[in-house]
């Protein structure tokens, strides 16, 4: 109902037809023996919000850090795959300095914890201005003005005064707005958001989701939005990748995925979200039994097998490929033998 008040710059009708902003294929990232990301591929079009959903240990945050080139070299490394950013080509293998020049300019990142993601000893205006100065070579004064303008853009009231505040003087919601201002300071074509609303209260979460949506319309950027919450996915995403134990198990448009989940993990996740149920005794939530497997010693076959109510012999023997389902929408992908050609019982 408020859609009309937002100026829609990006008038793209079919995101899939456009050249993707980001194309990731076969990404593998390891932390020692731990295969955190084990062959992940996806693409994001300009103006598209792609959600990566998963629980802790699914590798979703590692995907974001791998794209940004921020995997600490002492802890792990991107082993294989390609990360292609429109206008900048292949990012994997770029020198540190070249990568640093792209970060914050062509791609910005928003983090989960607004309380700890800003440097406590610098004024927030200074921190935003620093990014602008670094990438756009502005003077100190011009960068400060731009920082104030960015704060206004992300909905911080009296931005002139707030720019002079230190992070501890701002609420969690305001700090997250500051983080967003930093991420979009140089009009990036790609925004990576790693659980940006998880630490926030529900009314503030709604405000931040609306802000991210509005900024996407304005800048026409592609967004990779990482979350564990399928309800947030329903609110913000055009396409979804569901990750489990380092791989994508299902990807589809949001509506298709939430209306008819194909992978048993996706349907299990959806079912375990509490919703209104008839009153009376013995109300229970459907659960996914067990816990996420240890990534350092994954068994062969399907990674979800041990928790899957529908697992059969083949699941233990061979890992299913991520492929279009045998029946139904050819645009979606699922990693499950139940939906594979000629296998489904």
């Amino acid at each position: 109902m408020h859609e009309g008040s937002i100026p829609i710059v990006n008038a793209m009708s079919d995101p899939a037809a456009a050249v993707p902003v980001l194309e990731v294929s076969g990404l593998r990232t390891r932390f020692g023996p731990l295969r955190a990301v084990d062959g992940v591929s996806f693409a994001v079009a300009p103006g598209e919000t792609l959600c990566i959903v998963g629980e802790s240990g699914s590798g979703k945050s590692t995907v974001a850090l791998s794209i940004m080139g921020l995997i600490p070299p002492a802890a792990g490394r991107v082993e294989a795959g390609s990360i292609h950013l429109a206008g900048h080509g292949e990012l994997r293998g770029l020198a540190d300095a070249a990568m640093a020049a792209i970060r914050g300019r062509a791609m910005g990142m928003i983090f989960q914890e607004p309380m700890t993601s800003l440097n406590p000893v610098f004024k927030v205006g200074t921190q935003i201005a620093e990014v602008v100065r670094r990438h756009q070579g502005m003077s100190r004064a011009a960068a400060h003005d731009r920082a104030v303008e960015l704060l206004r853009l992300v909905g911080v009231p009296s931005p002139q005064m707030r720019a002079l505040d230190y992070p501890h003087q701002l609420s969690g919601g305001m700090r997250q707005r500051v983080m967003i201002a930093m991420a979009i300071a140089c009009d990036p074509m790609l925004i990576l958001a790693d659980e940006p609303t998880t630490a926030l209260d529900v009314t503030i979460q709604a405000q931040i989701l609306a802000l991210i949506e509005e900024l996407k319309q304005r800048l026409g950027s592609g967004i990779v939005f990482i979350t564990h919450d399928l309800r947030v996915v329903a609110q913000i995403a055009q396409t979804v990748c569901v990750m489990y134990a380092g791989v994508v198990v299902e990807s589809a448009t949001t509506r298709a995925l939430l209306r008819t989940p194909l992978h048993p993990y996706t349907s299990g996740l959806m079912a375990s979200i509490p919703a209104a149920q008839p009153r009376g005794t013995r109300r229970r939530l459907p659960v996914i039994a067990g816990t996420v497997p240890n990534l350092a010693k994954l068994p062969g076959g399907c990674r979800f097998r041990s928790r899957c109510p529908k697992a059969f012999d083949l699941c233990a023997e061979v890992e299913p490929p991520l492929a279009p389902p045998a029946k139904g929408d050819p645009d979606r992908l699922v990693r499950c033998w139940l939906h594979a050609d000629g296998v489904a019982a």
Binding site: M1, H2, E3, S171, G173, M174, D201, V202, T203, I204, Q205, A206, Q207, L209, A210, D229, L230, R231, V232, A234, Q235, T254, R255, L258, M270, I273, A275
Partner: peptide, 25 residues
């Protein structure tokens, strides 16, 4: 009402149906 409106729904067709309160606590 605001809390309920701000709680996201799993239904993708029920996006932004409610008004979220401005401001913070």
């Amino acid at each position: 009402q605001a809390l309920l409106a701000a709680s996201p729904s799993i239904d993708p067709d029920r996006r932004h149906q409610h008004v979220v309160p401005d401001g913070e606590v």
